[in-house]
């Protein structure tokens, strides 16, 4: 090995690298640094002995401590269930109204509900519960099946047209167009009539023509004023809420195709305590009013229609 250049100042060898007259010193590392490195190697060997480390063809070295992340998860889940036990028994003992009135218990229920909602309900109703076309908005004050705590709890339990013996949704909206119950012109007129029902401007002549059709086909469920019936999940046609859209095209589409929403029953999947928590969560986010559906608009449909026709 040839003699390397030494720096006069420090007496240390240089690496021979030089930039603009600045030379790099080959300063030796402190000896303890080396020991630290040996220590790390030793620690790795100890780790191989203690912990699962080396993969093999059919398995892996398990280590003498018997550490297993899977077993740990199972144990942690058991611990979690134990931890939740206290909260769950409180939920079980209280009525929905009592849960809502107790800030601490409500806060607990809200946390449980938020988590369950995110995992199960958000797929259709949206992460915030605002719904989408065909999927009801759970944050407003319009409820097809009732917005009281008990009604929400019942809907979650049995679902809508879910196959559950008590499922909600014994009524269905017929597909007037697809099933050729009404012809094109009648459906167009009926669309104008429904637009007029919600207080919007409509073609007066069409509304007049559709009056008889509405009486024949619609009032059995939607009522003479079009205000629907919450006890059977019949939508109110006079309010600002439209599950399948408020435009003429959307309304006509619904009369033609008669879509009927489905919601699964959650009874088998959730414990009764979880359903309670979820009901409290949904109710609180919707405003938490005892009976959120406002009394059906006391506007005489005829009056509205007369006005609409005149406009």
């Amino acid at each position: 090995m040839s003699e390397r250049e030494r720096d006069d100042h420090t007496g240390t060898e240089t690496t021979g690298h030089e930039w603009d007259g600045i030379k790099e010193l080959d300063t030796p590392l402190p000896r303890w640094w080396l020991w630290t490195w040996y220590g790390s190697i030793l620690a790795a060997v100890v780790y191989w002995v203690l912990m699962p480390a080396w993969p093999g063809l059919t398995g892996y070295t398990r280590g003498i401590l018997g550490q297993s992340d899977r077993a740990q998860v199972v144990q942690d889940l058991g611990g979690l269930a134990k931890q939740r036990h206290a909260g769950e028994s409180r939920l079980r003992a209280a009525t929905l109204q009592q849960i809502e009135a107790d800030p601490e218990l409500q806060s607990y229920a809200m946390q449980v509900g938020a988590s369950v909602f995110g995992d199960n309900c958000a797929t259709c109703h949206g992460a915030g519960g605002a719904g989408a076309k065909g999927y009801p908005n759970l944050r407003d004050d319009v409820w097809l099946w009732g917005g009281s705590l008990d009604a929400i709890q019942h809907t979650i339990q049995v679902g809508v047209r879910s196959g559950h013996p008590q499922a909600r949704g014994e009524t269905v909206m017929p597909a007037f167009g697809r099933d050729q119950m009404l012809d094109d012109a009648k459906i167009n007129d009926l669309t104008e009539y429904v637009v007029a029902l919600s207080g919007r401007k409509a073609d007066g002549a069409a509304v007049a023509r559709a009056r008889q059709t509405f009486t024949d086909q619609c009032i059995a469920c939607h009522g003479p004023a079009g205000t629907g019936d919450v006890s059977r999940g019949i939508p109110n046609l006079t309010d600002a809420e439209w599950l399948y859209g408020s435009s003429r095209e959307a309304i006509r589409d619904q009369i033609w195709n008669g879509r009927n929403g489905v919601m699964p029953t959650w009874e088998a999947r959730f414990s009764p305590e979880t359903v309670k928590a979820l009901a409290v969560y949904v109710h609180a986010n919707a405003g938490g009013v005892a009976e959120p559906v406002a009394p059906a608009k006391t506007v005489a449909a005829e009056g509205v229609l007369a006005g609409a026709a005149g406009r």
Partner: peptide, 18 residues
């Protein structure tokens, strides 16, 4: 503010923010 939904329209056309 609630960010999802940012606002909700109620049956009578009024608006509610959470």
């Amino acid at each position: 503010r609630d960010r999802n939904p940012t606002f909700v329209r109620l049956h009578d056309g009024s608006v509610r923010n959470g």
